[in-house]
Amino acid sequence: MKRDEIRDLVRKKRNALTQTEQKNAAKQLKVNLIQQLKPYKNAKIALYLTNDGELGTSELIQALQAENHSLFLPVIHPFSKGYLLFQKYEKNSPMTTNRYGIFEPKLNCSQICPIEQLDIIFTPLVAFDEKGNRLGMGGGFYDRTLAKYYQEQWQKPIVIGLAHECQKVALLPCESWDIPLKWIATPEFNYRW
């Protein structure tokens, strides 16, 4: 199956989840990950706001804020096309809608965190396989942004993909630019490679 076909199929599965199933999954994800993240104190954590049927992050955001972690959201880089920046996010952060209709913090350069200073980055994904391969929406934003991190084998940030269990497929066709993940969390499991 081609990448676009997998993308369409898995997005349909993800979007078919009921509101109750989505809420329960978000609560389970929070429970699953908060225990896993106990060793990290006052960490700098990047995550994303849910869009297009993605696994909900609002419960996780609230729990991480309650644990005194500093949170950062992706912002489309204004000058480097196809790259992301990670900007500080708090409950009262001014927000805007980017060109894809996704909420992001209104750009404030003084609140950008360099990627190497982040402890953890949670990434969205459309599909993943049993080897840690990740299929995104097709824009390549995370792959481009994380390429240097993988080429130089930085010790941090830890990159964790978030997905519903229904987004798992047997095998993804990969391209040279695809960045595999060492950890993917679903509400039910933590897959690590």
Rank of each mutant, 00 (worst) to 15 (best):
T50Y: 02
I184E: 09
P74S: 07
I45V: 12
F128A: 06
G136R: 06
S58C: 11
T18N: 14
A66H: 12
R99N: 08
I34N: 02
D178F: 05
V75F: 03
Q111C: 05
E130L: 11
S70Q: 14
K2Y: 10
V10T: 07
D178V: 04
T123V: 15
F86R: 07
N32P: 01
A43T: 00
V159E: 07
P74A: 09
G140H: 05
S176C: 01
D4Q: 14
S176G: 00
L9D: 08
P105T: 12
A66W: 05
V10K: 05
N24W: 05
N15S: 11
S70L: 11
W183H: 12
D4P: 00
I160V: 12
A66S: 13
C174W: 01
C174I: 14
L71V: 08
N190A: 08
N15R: 15
Y142L: 02
I34M: 12
L17E: 11
I179L: 07
F189R: 13
R14M: 09
F103M: 12
P105N: 13
Y150I: 01
Q35E: 10
D4Y: 13
L55I: 15
F141A: 02
R11V: 13
Q36F: 09
Y100D: 02
G138A: 05
N108R: 11
F103C: 04
L135S: 02
K44N: 14
F189T: 07
G56V: 06
A46I: 09
M95Y: 07
Y142H: 06
Q155I: 10
N24D: 11
R134W: 00
Y142M: 02
C109G: 01
W193A: 15
T50W: 03
K38P: 00
L146A: 05
S58V: 13
V159K: 08
L37T: 02
K106W: 01
L9N: 11
P173C: 02
I6H: 00
S58Y: 14
N92Y: 03
N15P: 09
P39H: 05
G101A: 12
K148Q: 09
A63Q: 10
A185Y: 03
Q35L: 04
Q111P: 00
R99K: 14
G138Q: 07
K44T: 05
L9Q: 15
P114T: 00
Q151A: 09
K106T: 15
L118A: 06
Y149M: 09
D143M: 01
K2D: 14
E67N: 06
R7K: 14
L84T: 12
E21P: 01
K23D: 14
W193D: 14
I76W: 01
D8H: 15
L37A: 03
M137Q: 11
K44S: 13
L55E: 10
S80R: 14
L107Q: 03
F128T: 01
I121E: 04
L9R: 15
K91S: 14
G139N: 06
Y100N: 08
G140S: 05
Y191R: 10
Q62H: 13
A26M: 10
V126N: 02
I102K: 00
T96N: 11
M95H: 04
C166K: 12
L60C: 07
L146S: 08
K131N: 13
R14H: 10
I6T: 07
Y100P: 00
K88T: 08
W177Y: 11
Q62N: 15
K81R: 11
Q155S: 14
L29H: 13
F128G: 01
I160C: 08
E116R: 08
